[in-house]
Design a protein around this nucleic acid. Structure first.
Length: 529
RNA sequence: AGGGGCGUAGCUCAGUGGUAGAGCAGCGGCCUUUUAAGCCGAAGGUCGUGGGUUCGAUCCCCACCGCCCCUACCA
């Protein structure tokens, strides 16, 4: 094949024959005296401007005005007709048709037009008119190539159908999928709104370390890295929590951070190793106030991003207009207990020693007979852990509409403050929507003795997910006095999923972590050239 | 990690135990208001990889690789 014999200036990409073809055209364009990569183009309109201002003007009105237009964009469609042709230019998610004909652009301009391909970036000058079929179009008088595309766009009818490629070549996905563009514009808007919400309430945005010498702030398996000069192993952070609370000790009474956390765990529809978390802390406050604030935040986001209180999510309709449902964890177990599994346990049963286990045994007997997933039941589970497991099996799948679950067992909440009336429970809540956990907040534990004790218990228990040493400096900070403080984390990726009706976390992360392509494996990072 | 599905032209997909097909894209030709433009022509494939069964495998069997879905752990 002749394409293979063509000498290529760089390590070629597939499809090679089309690459070679386009390189050939590039040479021909240069031979015509055009610079295929000029430095600038002075447009006088954006696509949105033209379409919004002239989209409803009639043909005769446009002819009378002869609106001069200079506009630049990518060629998204191309239809040649001998000595004339149409194309659509795309930019900012909009598109505008252009009409190029020999008489109007001259021999040299038309020769250039015939050497253009889908994907090329061009600038045109001319005036607006309406075609026979009524489409607003630029009558081109001058045509410039601004950047040659050496590789083709995705297939015009199906777009980028290969999901894997959509994530690997997000730039192509953004060109060819309007929905992808919409999702990431919404994501940017959501993050802007989050900042505005907290800025308006006197919170200070901060950035705390992403590399931690001591694991803490959550229970998760970490990534480990190494600093050469200090000869120090570091963990990529699993949570910013302990640093943010140090700042509250330091008198930043309201702080928030929007940034990445890293957890070396599984990847699925709602988990990515690198994910974005909003965490915020408010001194002189408690978890009840945060539930109110969270409800306000979600309601206002839904209103502003989606334009109303009710939003579709797959087959579901989620309603943020009503007050969010609120149940204690034990209440939720009672409420969603299936009738067929016999009489539900009472709140007192669940509070009694070994009560959660007894209830779980009854539930699991029914669940196994029904083929339903049972509550996790390991021999060593405490009453609190058993309660959590029972809640997950019995209640969690039912939490479709926005619902707060609060008063978590102390055993599964190492950083939350105990309830004064019941030390087996903590002042902690989670917000569930569409079966997903969206937020987790609590009244912060600020008793340094209790904290040190709980840290020691974690270290003693051991395992990949536990810190290997007590964060002494954090305890010291608490010794200087952390005011009564409430704090919360909100999973930003999941929030974006919800507000954009996306059903996989990879849809809302621009470049999600994927297994490297086979061909890329050879050039793995870390290898010296 | 376990179960299921998929892998055929650059892309989207048909198809058969007997040497492989369409549409789109690309290439050549015609076409000065088209829009999934149209018409004519030519080209494009080690049927994911490696073994096995068979006279013969893209098809059947085994293993591996990659991707997707479900299930278990984590936000």
């Amino acid at each position: 094949m002749s394409a293979k014999e063509t000498r290529l200036p760089f390590e070629p990409f597939e499809p090679r024959d089309q690459l070679a073809e386009r390189l050939k055209k590039l040479d021909e364009i240069r031979a015509l005296g055009f610079d295929p990569y000029p430095h600038r183009f002075d447009a006088n309109f954006t696509f949105a401007d033209v379409l919004d201002r002239y989209g409803s003007r009639t043909g005769p009105e446009l002819e009378a005005e002869r609106v001069p237009v200079r506009i630049a964009g990518r060629i998204l469609s191309l239809r040649g007709h001998g000595k004339a042709g149409f194309a659509h230019l795309g930019g900012e998610g909009r598109r505008l048709q252009i009409y190029v004909k020999l008489d109007a652009v001259g021999e040299r301009g038309f020769a250039l037009f015939r050497l253009l391909d889908l994907g090329d970036i061009i600038g045109v000058s001319g005036h607006l008119f309406r075609t026979k079929t009524g489409e607003l179009t630029v009558w081109v008088e001058d045509l410039r190539l601004l950047a040659k595309a050496l590789l083709p766009l995705p297939e015009k009818w199906h777009g980028l159908a290969d999901v894997d490629l959509r994530y690997r070549r997000r730039y192509l996905d953004l060109i060819s999928s309007e929905n992808t563009r919409r999702i990431f514009l919404a994501r940017a808007q959501i993050i802007r709104l989050l900042r505005a919400f907290f800025d308006d309430r006197g919170y200070v945005e901060v950035e705390t370390p992403m590399m931690h010498p001591i694991l803490g702030g959550a229970t998760a398996r970490p990534f480990v890295t190494h600093h050469n000069t200090l000869d120090l192993d570091l963990y990529l952070r699993i949570a910013p929590e302990l640093y943010l609370k140090r700042l509250v000790v330091g008198g930043l009474d309201r702080v928030y951070e929007i940034n990445r956390n890293f957890r070396n765990e599984g990847i699925d529809a709602i988990h990515q190793p690198e994910f974005t978390m909003l965490e915020f802390y408010q001194a002189y406050s408690d978890y009840a106030e945060l539930m109110d604030l969270t409800e306000q935040l979600f309601r206002s986001l839904v209103e502003r991003v989606c334009g109303g209180p009710r939003i579709p999510y797959g087959e579901l309709e989620l309603d943020f207009g009503q007050p969010f449902a609120r149940f204690t964890m034990r209440e939720a177990i009672v409420k969603f207990w299936p009738q067929a599994a016999g009489a539900p346990p009472s709140l007192a049963d669940l509070a009694a020693p070994r009560g959660p286990r007894t209830a779980a045994e009854r539930y699991n007997a029914w669940a196994l007979a029904q083929g339903q997933p049972p509550a996790e039941d390991a021999a060593g589970l405490s009453d609190g852990e058993m309660t959590g497991a029972l809640f997950e099996a019995v209640a969690e799948p039912h939490l479709v509409q926005p619902t707060f679950i609060y008063d978590f067992p102390t055993d599964i909440s190492p950083l939350s403050k105990r309830r004064p009336d019941d030390p087996s429970l903590t002042e902690r809540f989670e917000l569930f929507i569409a079966g997903m956990e969206l937020a987790n907040g609590f009244s912060e534990l600020n008793d340094p003795e209790d904290q040190e004790e709980r840290f020691r218990a974690q270290v003693a228990r051991g395992g990949d997910e536990m810190p290997r040493e007590v964060d002494r400096d954090y305890v010291r900070a608490l010794c200087h006095g952390l005011p009564p403080t409430a704090g919360e984390g909100i999973g930003v990726d999941r929030l974006v999923m919800l507000l954009t009706n996306s059903h996989a976390i990879r849809e809302v992360i621009l470049f999600p972590l994927l297994r490297p392509e086979a061909a890329e494996k050879r050039e793995s990072p870390g290898e010296e050239p």
